Simulated assay, not measured.
Amino acid sequence: MYKVFVNESPLILTNERQDNSNGNLFFLDRDSILMAIDSLAKGRLKEAYIYHPDEEKMLDIFKHKLPVVVAGGGFVTNPKGKVLFIYRNNKWDLPKGKVDKGESIEKAAIREVEEETGVKGLEIDKFLRTTYHVFKRNSEYQLKVVHWFSMYTSYTGKLVGEKEEGIVKVKWKGPKKIKKALKNSYHNIRILFKGWLISEV
């Protein structure tokens, strides 16, 4: 099972048929996918399911039905155990950005964190997970696939948000402030914090 978020509403790719679908079960063809996305984007549905019997193949098939943007992002911590957040579009988020042609996802993730926050001396600890969400650009729905990495830095210098990317704040946050920030964030960001210091995310 995979969750792809459309305006914070889940589009669930599943190999299990839903008994109580109530009109929110779709098949894995382009027209059905666009219909499901449109219904979620316009609030006609709160969640939707896309069924395909082969769990191993369904994500690859789904990716071939929409233009895909691959991005890398950082879950960055410092020696005090605080996490690096950015504030953009009236939401708390984590730094991430598009992978350039010929660039590795790891290098893109580090570059984007540096560009968006001003933080230096980043080291990747491990790969965390991949998240998926649909956005609209030039009247076309696109799938953003973000590969997240756990990163560490001992940087104590000035935090500078990338204005061109609409980032108005960059902050280090401890557990209490993280909990508050996640109430005004995204599902895909909250997913990254599950099991990390906070029991109620």
Rank of each mutant, 00 (worst) to 15 (best):
A109K: 01
N90H: 05
P53Y: 06
Q142N: 11
E56T: 04
K63E: 00
V134L: 03
G97W: 08
Y49V: 12
V99E: 08
D93V: 09
K80F: 02
V170S: 12
E112P: 13
H133R: 07
E116P: 01
V83Y: 01
S154I: 01
F127R: 02
V134M: 03
I178M: 12
L128E: 00
I167C: 00
K158M: 04
F85G: 05
G102K: 15
G81C: 03
I178N: 09
I50D: 03
I178P: 14
T77Y: 02
V145R: 06
E165G: 11
H64K: 12
I50S: 00
K144W: 06
G174R: 02
V134F: 12
I50F: 01
K107H: 10
V170E: 02
R111N: 05
L128A: 06
Q142L: 11
K80Y: 15
G73N: 03
V69S: 03
A48D: 04
E116S: 14
K136M: 15
V69L: 12
G102P: 08
E165C: 05
N138W: 03
A71D: 14
K126P: 02
V168S: 14
F62L: 10
V145W: 06
N78L: 05
G166P: 11
D93P: 09
V145A: 08
L59A: 07
V134E: 03
F75L: 13
K171E: 12
L94V: 08
H52R: 00
Y49D: 08
K163C: 10
G174Y: 02
M58D: 13
E56F: 09
Y155V: 11
I61H: 00
R44K: 10
H64V: 06
L143F: 13
P175T: 01
R137Y: 09
V113A: 11
F75K: 14
I105S: 06
D125Q: 08
E106A: 09
M151Y: 02
W172C: 10
E165F: 11
E47A: 05
G97Y: 11
N89P: 02
Y132F: 07
P79R: 12
E115H: 09
H64L: 06
Y141Q: 03
A71S: 15
G81L: 01
E162P: 07
E162A: 15
V168I: 14
E123T: 11
E162C: 10
K46P: 04
S154Y: 10
L66S: 10
Y87P: 15
K91C: 11
A48R: 03
D60L: 06
W172S: 00
K101V: 08
V168L: 14
P79D: 02
W148P: 07
R137S: 11
E47M: 12
Y155I: 12
E47N: 10
Y141G: 14
E164D: 10
L66V: 07
V99F: 05
V146M: 00
S150M: 03
K46M: 10
D125K: 15
K136W: 13
K98R: 10
E140P: 02
K80C: 14
R111C: 14
H52S: 09
S150F: 03
P175L: 03
Y87L: 06
G161P: 05
A109W: 00
V113D: 12
K46Y: 13
D54R: 11
I61R: 00
T117Q: 01
T156G: 09
V68T: 08
Y132G: 01
K180S: 15
K91E: 15
K57E: 11
A71W: 03
G121Q: 01
V168K: 08
